[in-house]
């Protein structure tokens, strides 16, 4: 048992402090908020594509890249549509090896999520959207440093589980009764594209589920729950052998264009311009085409 005096002391102290509580609270709350804000910057989804390139190995300019890479340094934060994950990860690694004193931090999510984040002040330098609708949201809010540039396009394809159990051969087959089709909801770009194709062909698909993202559609198909799903060509290709893609000519009715732009207020405008140049240039185009993207 503790001695008597030891129990009285804290209480006296607490009474003395009681009058100053508001100041204490305010300080602590501010600190807490700051913590939250800071932690938010390092939240999952934002990752550094660290290639472990040693800083400045000698003063001599690198052979191979003729650009003024030595001058470009700093950390560039790129917000990109989820469908660009593998290609942009590749390109970021390339960029970092071209410009050794630079770092690219990539954050992938649905385009509209990213727009919301940027509108709320997320520190993005470059934004690559999966459609023009989301990019123009930033444009109308004056959140772009310059006009965006289109760098790729994507069309829909029918993804089916391996073996194609429902025997899907064309877009019309999706309307057959008993075929379980999963699409994106019309609110998201892939769903809007699906609706456009439906309108253009005059055929209707009665989906068993309208998902919020392409990934969810792919998941339902690759697990075999759904007989078919409408996804982008690149998504089907990215899923590898888990799904089979059945291209259909009507997909040309809804081509999705991918724009990229520097975000207003970015402190790394030069670095941002260099990254955009890489994406829109021959190197970027080669990587994108290899992943199944089309020309812009």
């Amino acid at each position: 048992m503790s001695p008597h005096s030891a129990r009285i002391r804290p209480r006296r102290l607490s009474r003395a402090f009681l009058h100053r509580r508001p100041t204490h609270l305010a300080g602590l709350t501010c600190g807490l908020l700051l913590c939250t804000v800071l932690a938010g910057c390092g939240s999952p989804g934002v990752g550094t594509t660290g290639t472990g390139s040693a800083p400045a190995t000698g003063a001599s300019p690198r052979t191979g890249s003729a650009s003024a890479g030595a001058d470009l340094s700093g950390t560039l934060t790129v917000f990109a549509a989820a469908s660009l994950k593998s290609t942009f990860t590749d390109l970021a690694t390339k960029f970092e090896s071209d410009h050794p004193s630079s770092r690219i931090r990539l954050s992938f999510a649905g385009s509209s999520d990213l727009v919301t984040q940027i509108s709320e002040g997320a520190p993005a330098d470059v934004f690559a959207s999966a459609d023009n609708a989301n990019m123009s949201k930033l444009e109308t809010a004056s959140l772009l440093a310059a006009a965006s540039a289109n760098f790729a396009s994507n069309v829909l394809t029918i993804a089916v589980p391996p073996g194609n159990p429902a025997g899907i051969g064309s877009f019309k087959d999706l309307g057959r009764s008993g075929v379980k089709v999963v699409v994106c909801a019309p609110q998201v770009p892939c769903g809007a594209a699906a609706a456009k194709v439906e309108q253009a062909t005059g055929s209707t698909v009665k989906p068993v589920s309208e998902e919020s993202s392409v990934t969810d559609v792919l998941g339902k198909v690759s697990s075999g729950e759904a007989d078919a799903g409408l996804v982008y060509v690149t998504d089907a290709r990215g899923a590898g052998s888990k799904v089979t893609a059945i291209d259909f000519p009507e997909a040309a009715k809804a081509v999705n264009t991918y724009p990229i732009a520097t975000v207003a207020g970015s402190p790394h405008k030069e670095l941002a311009a260099a990254f955009i140049a890489l994406v829109t240039g021959p190197v970027g185009q080669k990587v994108l085409l290899a992943a199944g993207f089309g020309k812009p």
Partner: peptide, 17 residues
């Protein structure tokens, strides 16, 4: 369950969409 109006789209899923 997926997400379809009236069948599987509960309020949290509707909010998300």
């Amino acid at each position: 369950a997926g997400s379809l109006e009236g069948v599987t789209r509960t309020l949290p899923l509707e909010i998300y969409l």
